[in-house]
Design a protein around this nucleic acid. Structure first.
Lengths: 119, 119
DNA sequence: CAGTATCCGTCCTGATACTG
DNA sequence: CAGTATCAGGACGGATACTG
């Protein structure tokens, strides 16, 4: 196998997952319930409307999330994870677990350093 | 658990993995053999010296990669994965697998589209 | 409610040149 | 061999204002 191919596989996968907000968007959608635009916004308090829109469009493009528009006034749009998107679940789960452990590790290290300083 | 905490866990994990080249660097180092700077460069034909250095430094900072300097002329530096870094292996492996499948999927879709155009 | 449009800053990356 | 220094370009994210 070529190195470039290997690289592409990673890049391809990462492109689908990264972006400052994608993992958390996916995390919430992977809970199972479809979510409306503003529900997602509430779940991600710091995201801007623009970023939420952009990331959702990208995820939709890749068929990882499904966008359903209910033609009514006021408008209602629901986002949900696709079957295909669910295949990302193990990765997100690994990331989540690893990130958790990594954070705790870092906190411990920090604590040690601060202790040293007071010694 | 707070949403921010969840987000941080993802961000923390992603920070360690992303960067255009980190996954492939880690992929090669996870093969087990320590690699010298220029060996890595050969394995990643398109990376610039600068980027390789920067990413290696970040990985070293996070104790994912170990850097060993042999004080000799000409200089020799070897990079290897740490025990801690090995804990990233499942994530990288999932990413790799998923990316592979995702690429094949995309290629299939493209093929279909091109067929449509010639119809 | 669920978006667009516009503008702007910064961070990341790359190219190139130089060095112990 | 294994880097560092410097500069430049572009993608990315964010703030704000507007809309069907």
């Amino acid at each position: 196998m070529q190195k470039n191919t290997v690289q592409c596989q990673f890049v391809t996968a990462l492109d689908s997952i990264v972006g400052k907000w994608k993992p958390i968007i996916l995390y919430h959608l992977l809970q199972g319930e479809p979510l409306r635009f503003n529900e997602l916004r509430r779940l991600l308090p710091d995201i801007t409307q623009r970023m939420l829109t952009l990331h959702l469009r990208e995820l939709e493009e890749e068929e990882i999330v499904k966008r359903v528009i209910y033609p009514q006034i006021p408008p209602k749009v629901e986002y949900s994870i696709t079957e295909y998107g669910k295949s990302l679940s193990p990765i997100l789960e690994s990331l989540h677990q690893w990130g958790k452990a990594h954070m705790e590790r870092n906190l411990l290290k920090q604590a040690k350093n601060e202790q040293k300083e007071t010694d």
